[in-house]
């Protein structure tokens, strides 16, 4: 029992998703394809959706492997979007089988760690409370999850990826700016020195 088993089950699910939507796939389908028994599946996962979540988390981990920085996050976002496009059947079949709420939850798992890491870098030069940091991390996560979900809903057009530069122009440097704003707001007028 190991990460290899989890990965093999994930591979089977991704393979099955090229043929049918998630809601039509049973645990038995996955274990038959993978050549393990149901016990092995359930040792690792509560159900098929739990495995989908694992795939999102695992991918997020892979994207973050080299560390995410204020310098490379644009390329990482580009990679994520290209991969989602490349795995069209996985992405679209997952999209059509999940409720909006579930999709948001999984996409949040995919993106939040990256914004958290960016925040840690911004925080090297600033001081705001943990709660405020989470607040800003959430704003960025929701923004990107919202934009990407709409992009997936519209069939993942390639033009959008080409237009990403506009997004970068629009948000570049704004995380540090938001942190500074909160920092200023916290400083009491008698504490300005």
């Amino acid at each position: 029992m190991s990460v290899q088993t989890e990965r093999a089950l994930a591979q089977s699910l991704i393979k099955l998703l090229s043929k049918k939507t998630l809601d039509k796939i049973t645990v038995r389908d996955i274990t038959d394809d993978c050549g393990v028994n149901r016990q092995t599946f359930y040792y690792h996962f509560h159900d098929v959706y739990d495995l989908v979540e694992w795939i999102f988390v695992d991918r997020s981990r892979a994207y973050m492997e080299d560390g995410i920085t204020l310098g490379n996050w644009k390329n990482i976002l580009l990679r994520i979007m290209s991969d989602l496009r490349e795995d069209r059947s996985f992405t679209m079949n997952t999209y059509y089988s999940l409720t909006r709420r579930e999709l948001d939850e999984f996409m949040t798992k995919l993106f939040r760690p990256a914004f958290r890491q960016l925040m840690d870098q911004v925080m090297e030069e600033h001081r705001i409370s943990e709660k405020d940091q989470d607040f800003i991390v959430n704003i960025y996560t929701y923004a990107v999850v919202g934009v990407l979900t709409e992009w997936i809903a519209s069939g993942m057009p390639e033009e959008f990826i080409r237009d990403l530069d506009r997004l970068y122009e629009a948000v570049g440097g704004t995380m540090a700016f938001s942190v500074e704003n909160l920092e200023k707001a916290d400083r009491s007028p008698f504490d300005w020195k």
Binding site: Q39, T40, Y42, Y43, H44, H46
Partner: peptide, 12 residues
């Protein structure tokens, strides 16, 4: 052990 953990994991 794997069997009982799997049952617990399925029936949360």
């Amino acid at each position: 052990k794997e069997e009982i953990i799997a049952l617990c994991n399925k029936h949360q």
